[in-house]
Nucleic acid binder design. Structure first.
Lengths: 197, 197
DNA sequence: ACCTGAACACCGTTCAAGT
DNA sequence: ACCTGAACACCGTTCAAGT
């Protein structure tokens, strides 16, 4: 009774990961069920909505992102930790194509199964941002929601085939909007990161 | 023979505008045909693809954007003209929800009926950017594609319901990534725009 | 020339019927 | 309890048949 259900769950999750990796976030639920050799209604029993499926698919990735935040804030100055984590966060949005749309809309919808994940991301990002602001390296007129917004926008952008090759450069542009200009505030600037392409 | 076709075209375009205004860029083509009291195949005869329909819907908006660029570069310093035009461009992306996705993907697809419009936008934006770079107010390590990318990303972002209320602030953040920091280069700075929220 | 209706292969949702 | 198949109302595409 419960044993086969558990097996179905794991199996469905595995093939859903494959199908979504191939066809992106708006892959056909029917197709997932078909490739899992399971009735379509069975898929919907385990994951009543597309968001619920992605919550299961992305949970481990988000957990990893939160652990990385803890490590980074211990091992690096706040500003560098913020940038390094932001990098990882953008990479996370590449886990499946279309993830940014899902996460961004979930952030505004407490009913979404992805709501908790998006809030977790926003919260941990906001913590790193706050520390960098206290250090004086991140601009003061931003909050966690802004950071989450920029992360989503950048993730969406470099998920577009035409802009993917410019990912590093676009990351650099957005990052420069987050950080306080080094000439105006940071008197002890090491000047190591002044590369202008 | 040709008279009724012409009437159909105008009528279709008008109701398509209404339906798309209501349901966004992925509105049902069938629904548009239905509300125009016309066969679905007739709609596809006039607009063989969704992009072709949007090319017709957006053409006048893009033309207006190009005229505004000419006016702005005559009446304002290059940096301010760039920012003012960028503002208009982001507003343009609000003409119908989902326009950014279409324009961004068209930019990479010469076969798309929207390709010419996206290139036009990129080109005129690139011109304003270049002038601001020559003036020293826009950062040097950017080109028209980057500007188009940031425009698309910002338009997409503030098209998400949760981030729409922060449109002005997010615009300010992105703009600060485009402009050279006023403390480091602009010696004749008027200091009028130093509002930090 | 231009339009139409119908057929086709899809989609997500729902639910009575099976074990 | 858990699963299944079928029915439903959609979608975009295509094309033979009408005028």
């Amino acid at each position: 009774m419960r044993a086969d259900a558990k097996k179905n769950y794991g199996h469905l999750l595995a093939v859903a990961g494959d199908v979504v990796a191939e066809h992106g976030a708006d892959a056909s639920m029917r197709d997932i069920a078909r490739r899992a050799d399971v009735g379509l209604a069975t898929l919907f029993r385990h994951f009543p909505t597309r968001e619920a499926l992605f919550e299961a698919l992305l949970r481990t990735n988000v957990d990893a992102l939160m652990e990385q935040a803890s490590e980074l804030e211990c091992s690096l100055p706040a500003g560098e930790a913020l940038v390094a984590w932001f990098r990882q966060a953008v990479t996370f949005t590449h886990s499946y194509s279309g993830v940014c749309e899902l996460m961004a809309s979930a952030h505004d919808d407490p009913e979404s199964a992805l709501y908790a994940l998006s809030i977790a991301l926003r919260t941990v990002g906001g913590r790193l941002l706050k520390q960098a602001q206290a250090e004086g390296t991140a601009r003061a007129d931003m909050d966690g929601v802004d950071l989450f917004a920029l992360m989503s926008a950048l993730g969406w952008l470099v998920g577009q085939p035409g802009f993917a090759p410019r990912e590093d450069h676009l990351f650099h542009l957005i990052t420069s909007a987050i950080l306080v200009d080094q000439g105006s505030k940071a008197k002890t600037a090491t000047r190591k990161g002044a590369s202008k392409r």
